[in-house]
Every structure is written in structure tokens, then in C-alpha cells.
């Protein structure tokens, strides 16, 4: 059983079919990158996966069960979620942002501190930054806090919606390393939407290529290596779009 599956999903907005008959699986301990041009439906697909949108046809299976039949808020707490531009709440400090859901889940202070220390160490957020408000720290630091917030509840899956798109290339590389470090310590199913082919090449194990609302290819890194030993992954991805 895969933690996340979508079968025969279709989503129409105002007579425009954003997602058409999409079926795919997202395996455990694997980073899957969803790649496609703007408007191909990749963000909509991600919103279907965490129930921010619900499919007109077909269904999303989360932990083997249809997402529609689950308590959506409970389900989402098992899915980490981070977006472009961080989406940190401006009235909360970095620490309050990161620990908000754990507090709402009534974790003990000890557990919260332990988890916070673990995460902030991996992404290298110094403790004096944690007491500051989002607008007083750099974009890269905000992004790292956003990642910590998404990971706070030890979710079964992690959804990243162009989460690193707004930071400069150097900072982005640092965050990529933080993400990989996290993945090696706590391997999980990660689904990321990205424009950045280099990012996809660096991070992902699997690739979903989307065009006009459909998934045209699902391939693994080793599939590409086997079939096209001459080309780099980045190059292959660019050509297949």
C-alpha cells in the first residue's frame, strides 16, 4: 500500500478541465517531483492531494482510505504542507509558527521542545532567530521555518508547493541540503511541485510529467538513467516537457 494515491481524478473549473483522468501513486520514502509548464494543472493536483480542492470524479486515497471519507483536518495534520513565499503567520514568532499545530494538538511542552530542537538543528535555525517575527528574518530563514512547521507533527507525507521558489539560488541550495538531511533521518513520502529542473534533479527519486491536465509520464530516476544514459536528468526533463 502506498501512503498516497489518486485514481481517475477529474477537476473542472468554470468549464476548464484542470485535471483529467489522473491516476498515480506516491510511494513511501520517496520524493516525487511533479513537473510541467505553468497552467498544466500541477498545483491543482497538489491541492486535490491535501483536500484543499476535491475532485469532481475519482478519488484520493490517503493511508489506504478515501480522503473524502476522512476528517479532513485530522488527515491534513498527517500531511506536512509548505508553500511558496513561506506563508508564515505574521503575528506569530518563528517558534510560534512552527509549534502552532503541535500546541493545538496538545503536545506536551517537553515533546514540543524536543521536536523543535531536532528540526531547527537540521535546518540550522539558531535559537535566537526563533523568538523573532517573520518579517525580521531573511527569506531563506523564513523558508526553513516553513519547512520546520510542515514537519512538526511528524507527518506521513510532506507536500511542497513550489516551496523554495522565492529564495535566491544559493539559499535554495542550502535548503535542498536541509531537506535531504531530513529525508535521510526521517524518510517519508514527499510530493513536490516545482519549476526548477535542477531542483527536481537534485531532490527527486520519481518524476511526474504533466501536460494540459494529464500525467503524460511517470518515471523513476533509474528509468531515465537506463534509457538515456547519455543525457542528464535535467536535460531529459526539459526535453520531455
Amino acid at each position: 500500500m502506498h501512503p498516497l494515491e489518486i485514481t481517475n481524478a477529474r477537476k473542472v473549473f468554470n468549464q476548464h478541465t484542470a485535471i483529467d483522468k489522473v491516476s498515480c501513486v506516491f510511494p513511501e520514502k520517496t520524493i516525487t517531483a511533479i513537473i510541467g509548464k505553468s497552467g498544466c494543472g500541477k498545483s491543482t493536483l497538489l491541492k486535490l492531494l491535501n483536500g484543499l480542492e476535491s475532485p469532481d470524479e475519482g478519488e484520493v486515497l490517503f493511508l489506504g482510505q478515501s480522503l473524502q471519507t476522512q476528517n479532513i483536518n485530522d488527515a491534513r495534520k498527517k500531511m506536512g504542507y509548505a508553500v511558496q513565499g513561506t506563508g508564515l503567520f505574521p503575528h506569530l514568532t518563528l517558534k510560534q509558527n512552527i509549534t502552532l499545530v503541535a500546541e493545538l494538538e496538545q503536545w506536551s511542552t517537553h515533546d514540543i521542545e524536543q521536536r523543535l530542537n531536532f528540526l531547527s538543528e537540521i535546518v540550522q535555525l539558531e535559537s535566537d532567530l526563533l523568538t523573532r517575527y517573520p518579517h525580521t528574518v531573511s527569506g531563506g530563514q523564513q523558508q526553513r521555518a516553513g519547512l520546520c512547521r510542515a514537519m512538526m507533527l511528524k507527518p506521513d507525507i510532506l507536500l511542497l508547493d513550489e516551496a523554495f521558489a522565492a529564495v535566491d539560488p544559493i539559499t535554495r541550495v542550502e535548503i535542498h541540503h536541509h531537506l535531504l538531511a531530513l529525508q535521510s533521518l526521517e524518510p517519508r513520502c514527499i510530493v513536490m511541485v516545482t519549476h526548477d529542473m535542477r531542483e527536481a534533479e537534485l531532490l527527486a527519486d520519481r518524476f511526474l510529467i504533466m501536460k494540459a491536465g494529464t500525467v503524460t509520464q511517470q518515471v523513476t530516476r533509474s528509468d531515465i538513467k537506463k534509457q538515456y544514459p547519455e543525457s542528464s536528468i535535467e536535460q531529459w526533463l526539459l526535453e520531455s516537457l
Binding site: N50, L52, I72, N73, D74, A75, R76, K77, K78, M79, Y81, V83, G85, G87, F89, P90, H91, L100, V101, L104, R149, A150, L159
Partner: peptide, 25 residues
């Protein structure tokens, strides 16, 4: 609207979203 979307995405119930995010803002 992004903050509301993030609050939903993090699994906050409508009530939690109102009290913890929208009302303070």
C-alpha cells in the same frame, strides 16, 4: 488568502483558523 490556505493546509479546523489566525490578524 495565502495565509488562510496555509492554515487549512496545516489542518486547522475553521474554528481554530478563526481564533488563532484570522481574529488576531
Amino acid at each position: 488568502p495565502l495565509l488562510k490556505q496555509v492554515a487549512d493546509g496545516l489542518g486547522l479546523s475553521p474554528k481554530q483558523r478563526l481564533w488563532k489566525i484570522e481574529l488576531p490578524l
